[in-house]
Amino acid sequence: MFLSLESVSVQYPRSTARRAAVEAVSLGLKAGQIGVLIGPSGCGKTSLLRAVAGLERCHAGRIVMDGRALGDAAAGVHLAPEARRIGMVFQDYALFPHLSVADNVAFGVAHLPRAERQARVQTMLDLVGLAHAARRAPHELSGGQQQRIALARALAPQPQLLLLDEPFSSLDADLRETLAQELRAILKASGTTALFVTHDQFEAFALGDVIGVMHQGRLEQWDDAYTLYHRPATRFVAGFIGHGVFTPAQIVACAHGPCVHTPLGELNDLDECPLPAAFPDGHCDVLLRADDIVHDDASPVKACIERKAFRGSEFLYTLRLASGERVMAHVPSHHDHQVGEWIGIRAEVDHVVTFARATGAD
Results as ranks from 00 to 15, higher is better:
residue 300 P to H: 00
residue 159 P to W: 01
residue 191 G to V: 02
residue 135 R to P: 11
residue 268 N to L: 11
residue 8 V to E: 01
residue 169 S to K: 06
residue 98 H to K: 10
residue 271 D to N: 10
residue 15 S to G: 06
residue 199 H to N: 02
residue 354 T to M: 11
residue 325 E to S: 11
residue 130 L to G: 05
residue 272 E to C: 14
residue 72 D to Q: 07
residue 316 L to D: 14
residue 40 P to W: 03
residue 352 V to T: 14
residue 76 G to I: 03
residue 288 L to Y: 01
residue 141 L to N: 15
residue 163 L to I: 04
residue 359 T to W: 09
residue 196 F to C: 05
residue 284 C to Q: 04
residue 167 P to I: 00
residue 140 E to Q: 14
residue 228 L to G: 00
residue 338 Q to C: 04
residue 55 L to W: 06
residue 335 H to T: 04
residue 89 V to K: 07
residue 96 F to V: 09
residue 263 P to C: 02
residue 170 S to C: 13
residue 164 L to G: 10
residue 67 G to H: 14
residue 291 D to M: 02
residue 322 A to C: 05
residue 90 F to T: 04
residue 122 Q to T: 05
residue 290 A to I: 12
residue 332 P to C: 04
residue 274 P to S: 08
residue 26 S to W: 06
residue 79 L to Q: 15
residue 262 T to E: 09
residue 195 L to Y: 00
residue 357 R to S: 12
residue 117 R to C: 02
residue 137 A to V: 04
residue 336 D to M: 03
residue 207 L to S: 02
residue 284 C to P: 01
residue 35 G to I: 15
residue 65 M to D: 11
residue 32 G to N: 15
residue 359 T to C: 07
residue 216 Q to E: 14
residue 106 A to H: 01
residue 348 E to F: 14
residue 250 Q to A: 07
residue 335 H to I: 06
residue 97 P to E: 15
residue 268 N to Q: 12
residue 106 A to M: 14
residue 45 K to F: 09
residue 246 F to Q: 10
residue 172 D to N: 15
residue 51 A to G: 10
